[in-house]
Write a protein that binds this DNA or RNA. Structure first.
Lengths: 352, 352
DNA sequence: TTGAAAGCGTTACCAG
DNA sequence: CTGGTAACGCTTTCAA
């Protein structure tokens, strides 16, 4: 008795194998094609008998509904675009994993776009529109015009740790300024007086907000003479930044406020290795983000951790809601970071 | 004079905005729909006059060809699935970024799937088949049966740092065994005699290969009495593993061979903090992967770095080739890791 | 509950 | 070079 259900194996590897369609299933099951379609939907109206026959036929043929064809007729691709920059993923691989996983729980697939350079943005937008994604979450900066392009196509967008001034947009972000203000005030409360700041790349809005927050708080404390150097978020640039501070500042600062953890770690190493300083006895160094290495014993950073889990959950649910209900008005959700008092800063206990 | 090119704005936010189709463009340009289609293809045969009129009309309407519809007729979605595990992305965020970027240079989009648990694999496969991806690169383990399912659909697959025993598959991987053998022989050459091994999770094929490589080499050197403890690749588990070694072994090892860098860092911290050991003077610790933190001054691991750039490039080009030419025979590409002699191990100079 | 037929927006084929 | 028409594989009326 010959079993035909491996018929495709024989076809071999040459021509693109012909996949079973709903018509094939219908024929084998002796029902109409519409019936097959219905069986593979949620609110299907199909008798148990038919359902069984269809399912068994489908099984035999290895049939799977073609999501592409479905998307064409339903006007819903069930795909969303996620736009990240190299930076985002390098320092928060967690974000992407979480977004993907949560979307998939809603039956939504992620089409991934990574931006190497700002100038690639337009082409990425073009692609994402061609692919008829149902929504977008972007962890990259968009111009008002670019945002307009997506909006005109009727696609909801969520900004992740970004926003668009002067425009009503949906966003999920960690309150960078608040976090920096806390860090600075902790340091000041513990007697630090001479501050230096290591900022991130000039084109990073996140870095801008952090630096602004720190400066504001310092100003409120009447600390005006603050040296600012900048890096590119990398470990090496953190080391270089610290070296520059030592080089250019008269005397040492007693606190260095760094725009992210990775650079803060670079600062710690440079302080210890090249300058023979003890952290935190001789100098306090604080970061931002709460990445894994910040918790390594050698660093134990005082920092503010972004609540990635809650933020990505918020992004996903906001986007899904807006896909299902395009009329929803814009919303901004701002999360406070988790405050971590690590050993990299000399802080007094403030148990009230 | 009223400008109609913002007509959609008015429609507002309610009904899913109707996007311009090739028919709309055709009408406005006064040509046939087929003509529009041709203009938006590569080897188009269209007069300059027509091309201009079509392009200007398309521009005015904000027209973009619908990639979904195109995929339906051409039988090519121009999407590939990338399957990663949480682990993969957490410790190699670089891999995903590189894959995505390189694919996009070939006009191919990445549909991302992340696996939290092994048991999710089948549903991921189901999804990816429904979406008619043109190919798959998987950094997660697949069973022979699962591989068969994809193969039957005529979709080429590249295994990333994985393979499938007893089966002809395409794979790109770093030679884990070779790397471990080098690490062990360096340590042995430098006089280390008492070894301990920290392996990764039991279900990680990569960890298995690494451990096997280390054990083989040790055996060749007639070092048989090796304690093996295991962790889950995390920093915390590295610390726990080192504690367990100290606890269970009589006397200390002089070298600990760890299955990845993150756990190795955990071992270093545990050795220093809890056991007051100097690394490498009292004990040598080596890792594997070459992740960023391995280069932080506090650790400076001796390790083997996976050549992520070359590996992802290989994966992309192998997959694209096989999408374009399904008849191509399977190929395995094995890359040697970059050997890094860091300060975490007491190694003698071997300048010949 | 079931089937026939009309699209969805493209590309592909074939005359002109 | 150009336009008409038939797919692609599905969902969705609308009758039966």
């Amino acid at each position: 008795m010959n079993k035909p259900h491996k018929q495709q194996q024989e076809t071999g590897r040459q021509s693109p194998i012909k996949r079973a369609t709903s018509y094939d299933v219908a024929e084998l099951a002796g029902v109409s094609q519409s019936a097959v379609s219905r069986v593979f939907q949620d609110g299907a109206s199909a008798s148990k008998d038919m359902r069984d026959r269809v399912l068994s036929a489908a099984n035999k043929l290895g049939y799977r509904p073609n999501a592409i064809a479905r998307g064409l007729i339903t006007q819903r691709s069930n795909m969303v675009a996620v736009i990240i920059t190299r930076q985002t993923n390098l320092y928060y691989p967690e974000v992407l994993v979480q977004l993907t996983q949560r979307f998939s729980e809603h039956g939504v697939r992620v089409l991934l776009f990574t931006l190497e350079h700002e100038r690639d943005t337009d082409s990425v937008l073009d692609q994402l529109l061609q692919y008829q994604v149902d929504g977008v979450v972007t962890a990259a900066t968009l111009s008002a015009e670019q945002m307009g392009t997506i909006e005109n196509a009727g696609i909801p967008v969520i900004f992740y740790n970004r926003t668009l001034p002067e425009r009503l947009v949906n966003s999920v972000r960690c309150d960078q300024e608040e976090g920096e203000r806390w860090l600075v005030s902790e340091l000041a409360n513990s007697g630090h007086k001479r501050f230096a700041i290591v900022s991130g790349p000039a084109d990073s809005s996140v870095s801008m907000e952090r630096t602004r927050g720190a400066l504001q708080k310092l100003k409120e404390l009447n600390i005006d003479d603050v040296m600012i150097v900048s890096g590119d978020y990398s470990y090496a640039s953190g080391r270089a930044a610290f070296a520059e501070i030592v080089d250019r500042m008269e005397g040492l600062p007693d606190a260095v406020v760094v725009a992210n953890d990775v650079m803060a770690i670079g600062c710690v190493d440079e302080a210890r290795e090249t300058n023979n300083l003890r952290v935190p006895e001789d100098i306090s160094i604080v970061g931002f983000d709460g990445v894994g290495p910040a918790r390594y014993a050698a660093y134990d950073l005082t920092t503010v951790r972004q609540p990635v889990g809650r933020m990505s959950e918020a992004a996903v649910s906001m986007l899904i809601e807006r896909i299902e209900n395009p009329g929803l008005s814009p919303e901004k959700r701002v999360f406070s970071g988790d405050r971590i008092r690590g050993g990299s800063a000399r802080l007094v206990d403030d148990e009230a």
